[in-house]
Design a protein around this nucleic acid. Structure first.
Lengths: 156, 156
DNA sequence: ACCATTATTTTTAGTAATTCAAAATAACTG
DNA sequence: CAGTTATTTTGAATTACTAAAAATAATGGT
């Protein structure tokens, strides 16, 4: 997760104030939820916030606003996994340009460090004269559980 | 582009029939348009088909159906670039798992061969027990033109 | 070449993710 | 503690895409 001095609330409050944003409990709660449930969509974050009365009054539109704002100031990273059912997902692990691996069947998503130490994927064969900012990499895969399931389905 | 024996129409017709799909002029025209305008969205393909009366009656829904079907049988590759304004894009260059580089300002998209010959990005640091299928890689960048524009804007 | 069969396309609606704008609310400043 | 103004809430719109039924057209058999 993320380094948390004193309490995570203090940590996020400091980060928000640094960027000139107000510290609302919607934002704090969203950050905590995302920190504990990485790769969540706005919809999932919204449900987690309502569940257990964390922030009973929050709306989905507010969540969208929050993730947009927090992504803009670098507290969150937005990831767009390929696929038609693709809602944007968010995570608090920012700044290291790590990648993701997703099971094409069950949708399970895990973090993957850069394949070769540095940032090898930032060295494409041809930049077409562009200045590189970052590489968005998603590995598509089939997880072990799904492979077993698929094997059964094939037998039947 | 794609190897084209005799005419490109013959080529695509053969490919369609091989897969048991009927050869309609909507499909043929879509394939030609995508071949000549790689990285087009359904909307863009739709406009290109209507323009110049290529297929005046075609509808956007049909284009969606076509790109879905042709992607399913491997005649097209679907690419999902990150970003909120992200409509899926399609290209006829399939099967080589190449990557893309996109200018974050003007949206220009170019093909990029795999960074190191083979498929280096298919070697993540940890597969989490999953079987790899492919890597979806998008390089985010700023193209030369936009860099000049940004420089001017900064001066002003 | 013609007709029947059935895939495709068209037409008409609907859904999901996200954005926009105005009113209500709640953080920060002094 | 009160005023200012960012943020949230409320309510509505947009974009990309999907779904289902009716109309059309591509292929196979004669």
């Amino acid at each position: 997760m993320t380094p948390e001095p004193a309490s995570s609330t203090d940590y996020w409050s400091t980060r928000l104030r640094e960027q000139g944003l107000r510290v609302t409990h919607q934002r704090l709660a969203a950050l905590e939820v995302i920190d504990h449930h990485p790769h969540s969509s706005a919809e999932e974050i919204y449900r987690l916030l309502k569940r257990a009365q964390r922030v009973p009054t929050v709306t989905l539109q507010t969540v969208h606003g929050i993730v947009n704002d927090l992504t803009a100031i670098g507290l969150l990273r937005r990831i767009d996994l390929p696929g038609k059912d693709s809602a944007a997902r968010y995570e608090t692990r920012v700044g290291d340009n790590h990648h993701h691996i997703e099971c094409v069947r069950c949708g399970r998503v895990e973090d993957v460090d850069c394949a070769r130490g540095e940032a090898p994927c930032l060295l494409p064969s041809d930049t077409h004269g562009m200045t590189l900012l970052e590489a968005q990499v998603t590995y598509l895969a089939v997880c072990h559980e799904c492979e077993l399931t698929l094997r059964k389905e094939t037998h039947a």
